[in-house]
Amino acid sequence: MEQNNKKDVENETHETPSFNSVTEHYRTIMGVPTNKVDMKKMPRVLRLFGYAVFAIAAICAVIFIIMYVLQFL
């Protein structure tokens, strides 16, 4: 039952809980964000840029694999 409450609190605040005191210290010192990124709240230009970068990376990976396989034929 306690697990469900933790998940509910995490979903409401969108905050990633610390694993232990070491990660908490690292987040405090380094300034690592604890909130999860909500792509729907990002500006449209940034969302499109992010999608384009991931799409180009995926296409390059597929082309690289195809070229690597064709090298041995």
Rank of each mutant, 00 (worst) to 15 (best):
E2F: 10
E2N: 12
E2W: 08
E2I: 03
N4M: 08
N5K: 11
N5W: 04
N5P: 01
K6D: 02
K6G: 01
K6T: 01
K7S: 08
K7A: 05
D8R: 05
D8M: 07
N11T: 05
E12Q: 06
H14F: 02
H14S: 10
E15Q: 10
E15Y: 10
P17I: 01
S18D: 15
S18I: 09
N20P: 07
S21C: 07
S21D: 06
V22M: 12
V22W: 14
T23K: 09
E24R: 14
H25V: 05
H25C: 07
H25A: 13
T28C: 01
T28E: 08
G31F: 06
V32E: 09
P33K: 13
P33V: 15
T34S: 03
T34G: 08
N35D: 14
N35I: 09
V37Y: 00
V37C: 02
D38A: 11
M39L: 15
K40V: 15
K41E: 15
M42H: 11
M42S: 09
P43V: 11
P43G: 14
R44D: 05
R47T: 05
L48C: 13
Y51C: 08
A52W: 08
A52P: 04
V53M: 14
V53L: 15
F54H: 10
F54C: 07
F54L: 11
A58Q: 13
I59S: 05
I59W: 02
I59P: 03
C60I: 05
A61I: 04
I63Q: 00
I63A: 01
I65S: 08
I66C: 04
I66Y: 08
M67T: 07
V69C: 04
V69W: 07
L70Y: 05
L70W: 05
Q71Y: 07
Q71H: 09
F72E: 11
F72M: 13
L73I: 09
L73M: 02
